[in-house]
Amino acid sequence: MSTTVDFPIHNPVEDILRMDRIPTIWCPGCGIGTSVNSFAYALLSTGIELKKVAIVSGIGCSGRVSGYTKMDSFHVTHGRAIPFATGLKLANPELTVVVYSGDGDLTSIGGNHLIHAARRNMDLLVVCVNNMIYAMTGGQAAATTPGAAISTTTPYGSFEPELNIAHLVDAAGASFVARWTVFHVKMLEKTMKEALSKKGFRFIEVLSPCPTLYGRRNNLADGLAAMKDYKERSKIRNGAPTHETALVQGGEIVVGKFVDRERPDYLTLMRQQLGANYHPLPPQPDENPEAGVAKEDCCSC
């Protein structure tokens, strides 16, 4: 196949990826890369300066996103992506902080951090890639594994009802809650763009196929079968009450933007209550070679 155009063909997603790290470690048919595409287009369309964006990931397959994106990115210990991101945002409120992690990391091991960040309405965008299983550690049942699904630790099917993350963060007070699957790339891009321009705790759940460890045991042999399953089972219900959006195996997948409310975020409340006692950090030195000079000027000690 040859192309006959007289301009260089450049994929804009490559602007935010560390291309020396590509190809990714993700399995064929995994949907995490697709969600990264939607995120990349959303981020590029908002026009936010990439130097002002930080991505924090926990452990897991989707935790690798921080390593593949060409921004300030942090790959932190298991479950602690949100506490790290909270500190990052409080230390440097100018940053747009994005937590990009998986369901096992955010809702099981870091479950309390998720609840309390939503309660505080911390100014974070949390993208939770939900593949319904602990994929990187070998396919153990997670909190989000739907009842009756087979995993390595539940060979006769899970006996536990699954956790509805959208309902949890809504109840805890998140200001923006949405759910899409990786089949809905354009809607996901639009929602991510909208969430990036909002303040407060914004939570986007992205259902993604895991062909190797979830699909293979649950009649979804490859990523494509899972995508077709999402296409058939998903139903867009924007503004649906989150208690009606549980993900039951074989049942309807309710997707859409569920919650969008205005609530003062943590930093706003902190500044209001502290008033004159609030002292922001002194200006940080830039990355240019004259940074040392600037540091001497601003330091009074």
Binding site: V5, F7, I9, N11, V13, E14, L17, I22, P23, T24, W26, G29, C30, G31, I32, G33, T34, V36, N37, S38, Y41, V185, K186, E189, G223
Partner: peptide, 18 residues
């Protein structure tokens, strides 16, 4: 470029001719 949006490995990119 819907193929490019779906590609999990950033391996395909659709573009329009001038």
């Amino acid at each position: 470029n819907l193929c490019g949006m779906y590609c999990p490995d950033f391996a395909i990119y659709g573009y329009r001719f001038p």
